[in-house]
Design a binder for these strands. Structure first.
Length: 294
DNA sequence: ATGGCTGCAGGATGCAGA
C-alpha cells in the first residue's frame, strides 16, 4: 500500500516527477488507472453548492462522499452535479444530518441506512458499489454521531452506532470485498490528531471509550488511509468556526477513510485538501482524498 | 467563555454541531 516514495514526495506529484525516468513512467502509468475517492463534510448543501462545484471541477474525484447535506432528497440540487457528469445518490434529512455519494462511475447497487436498528431515523449512512478494472468496490459515506454532551443520551447513541458499524464491517470483511468506509467519524483517534489534545479530554470525540471502539474497528483489519501514507502529526480535517481556530491552526483530524485489506493493497496516495478551509463561506471540515489502483 | 460561529427552520429565536 501507499507505493509513493517516502518523505516529502508522498502524495506530491511534483516531487514524483523529479525522480528517475523509470519511476516517472511507472507513476504516470499507475496514475492513469487509479480511482480517486474523496470524503467531505460540507455542512449544508445550500450554503455550499458553489464551493462544492468549484472543488469538484478542480479535484475531479471519481467518487465524492458528502456528509451533513442538511437537506431532504427532494430539495437536494442534484441537477447541477449531474450537469458536471456525476451520478447523485442521497440519503437526506430535513434540517440536519444527511449523506450523499456523487460518482462519475455508474452505480451498480445502492442502499441507505446503517443496518442494526430499524428505529434509527437519522440519515447518516449510504453505500454504493462500483465496477472498476479489478472488480467491484464498495464505498460507504457515513456521518458518525457527534455524541456531545457525554452525559446526555447522545453519547450512548454514538457508542451504539459505532457498535453497529463494527458489526457491519465484520460482515463485509467476511465477504472479502474491497471496500472503503469514508466519512466524518467524529473520532480523534490519537493525541497527535489534535493541535491541543488536552482541550478534548472531556469531549465525546476523544473519550477513552470512543477511542477504544474506533480501535476495535481498526483492529478488525481496516487501514486508516491517511495514516498509512503520513506518519507525522499536525494534519487536521476540521477547524472550528469559533475563536480563530483556523488562523491558529487549532484543528483536529476526524474525517477518515478506512480501507478493507483488498482496498488497502491498492492504496496509492492519501491527502487532506486543507485549502478549502481558507475559502469564503467555508465548511468547517475539509476534503480527504485517496487514490486506489483501479 | 457559560461554545466566543455557522447553517437551517421558519418567520423570532432555538437547536445542533464539535
Amino acid at each position: 500500500m501507499c507505493r509513493a516514495p517516502v518523505g516529502k514526495a508522498r502524495g506530491n506529484p511534483t516531487a514524483l516527477r523529479r525522480r528517475s525516468d523509470g519511476l516517472e513512467v511507472e507513476n504516470i502509468k499507475r496514475r492513469g488507472i487509479t480511482v480517486k475517492i474523496a470524503t467531505w463534510n460540507i455542512n449544508g448543501i445550500r450554503a455550499r453548492v458553489d464551493g462544492v462545484l468549484a472543488w469538484l471541477r478542480d479535484c475531479s474525484p471519481d467518487v465524492a462522499c458528502l456528509q451533513e447535506i442538511k437537506s431532504d432528497d427532494g430539495p437536494f440540487p442534484r441537477q447541477v452535479f449531474e450537469d458536471l457528469g456525476y451520478n447523485v445518490e442521497t440519503h437526506g434529512q430535513k434540517g440536519f444530518n444527511g449523506v450523499a455519494i456523487l460518482s462519475k462511475l455508474p452505480v451498480d447497487e445502492v442502499s441507505r441506512g446503517l443496518p442494526g436498528d430499524g428505529s434509527d431515523a437519522q440519515a447518516r449512512f449510504i453505500e454504493a458499489v462500483f465496477s472498476v478494472d479489478s472488480g467491484a468496490i464498495r464505498v460507504v459515506s457515513l456521518y458518525l454521531p457527534n455524541g456531545n454532551p457525554v452525559n446526555s443520551d447522545k453519547y450512548p447513541y454514538k457508542l451504539g452506532w459505532m457498535e453497529r458499524l463494527e458489526t457491519y464491517a465484520k460482515q463485509r470483511l467476511a465477504a472479502e470485498e474491497a471496500f472503503v468506509l469514508a466519512g466524518d467519524y467524529n473520532v480523534i483517534p490519537e493525541p497527535e490528531d489534535a493541535r491541543h489534545p488536552e482541550n478534548w479530554t472531556r469531549d465525546a470525540l476523544f473519550q477513552p471509550e470512543t477511542r477504544r471502539r474506533y480501535r476495535r474497528l481498526i483492529n478488525l483489519g481496516l487501514t486508516d488511509a491517511f495514516r498509512a501514507c503520513t506518519a507525522e502529526p499536525g494534519h487536521y480535517s476540521f477547524w472550528d468556526y469559533q475563536a480563530g481556530a483556523w488562523q491558529r491552526n487549532n484543528g483536529i483530524r476526524i474525517d477518515h477513510l478506512l480501507l478493507s485489506p483488498l482496498a488497502a493493497d491498492r492504496l496509492q496516495s492519501a491527502m487532506i485538501d486543507k485549502q478549502t478551509r481558507g475559502w469564503d463561506k467555508p465548511s468547517d471540515h475539509v476534503p480527504v482524498i485517496i487514490e486506489l489502483d483501479a
